[in-house]
Design a protein around this nucleic acid. Structure first.
Lengths: 148, 148
DNA sequence: GCAATCTGATTGCTTTGTTAAGTAAATTTT
DNA sequence: AAAATTTACTTAACAAAGCAATCAGATTGC
């Protein structure tokens, strides 16, 4: 039995790195009572525009049942709207509202400052390299698939 | 308001990358009914030896309350033991058992194979670079701390 | 030596994750 | 076109995460 050292295990290393990076962001978000997940949802919506839930779930790294529940409360809070697609009435199109955008803009400066602080601490060049590697790893293609 | 593109946001990029990497591992673990979190706990315990819960929580990226509850069931399952420290009876020292080690060895081969497959797909050199960057980012030192 | 504070772990409550089942609308098959 | 299948989302049920409050054992100040 010879498992990798945990700090050379990619899943664990990714998780630890994320915890480090998220710590100050969690502080920021907790002040306005918005969860990490809701923050991701509105960021994706703002970036990608109105979209259906399945795509949104994928982009925001959430499972559809979790998303369904969250969207219900977020709709009640007025952060977004849902409307069923005219062409395909199974689909519901989610769209960010002005109030949703306001949540983003309320935290925009601080969020940018945090990102800048990280960039200073870690190095702009390294950050670019890291992001490139992560994007490449994530590659929206087929999964590794070794067991067959 | 100018937030980064989500794929250039480190927290989101880390999360998406992790989801990609974890997918096949989740398949492996689900077959033996062990959760991702328990897997991390026994890996850390095996690697670092007996340790108190606060340190274990940090290494395994869990909050103490979550860990407390997990340890209760893992102790019942015989994967580990808890004993209160003689010197400081607030602390409880967690130690992996033979049964706990067996869970690791049961998945050792497959786990190694998955890691190897990833290495082939992604490139050994890139993987090394990525792990180095992640380790450096995680750096067990003070957090960024910009708000003061 | 006792009150106040700090630390490590636990418990309670709400939200989220997870799996499975269910519903409704589209698509495919025959 | 009716039946069967697939797709998109929802609901349900239960485990786990996350946060706040609590408890017990140590430490510190007086």
């Amino acid at each position: 039995m010879s498992l990798r050292r945990t700090d050379r295990s990619l899943p664990i290393a990714l998780l630890r790195a994320r915890e480090t990076v998220m710590a100050p962001i969690r502080v920021m978000l907790s002040q306005s009572g918005i969860s990490e997940q809701k923050w991701r949802v509105i960021r994706v919506l703002e970036e990608a525009g109105p979209m259906e839930q399945t795509a949104l779930a994928k982009e925001a790294c959430l499972l559809l049942p979790s998303l369904t529940r969250m969207l219900q409360s977020m709709e009640e809070e007025g952060l977004l709207t849902r409307a069923s697609d005219a062409r395909d009435r199974r689909k519901s199109i989610v769209k960010i509202t002005a109030a949703g955008r306001k949540v983003l803009s309320d935290h925009s400066d601080e969020s940018t400052a945090l990102a800048a602080a990280l960039e200073r601490r870690f190095g702009a060049q390294k950050l670019e390299t890291l992001l490139d590697l992560l994007d490449e790893l994530t590659e929206r293609d087929a999964p590794p698939h070794t067991d067959e």
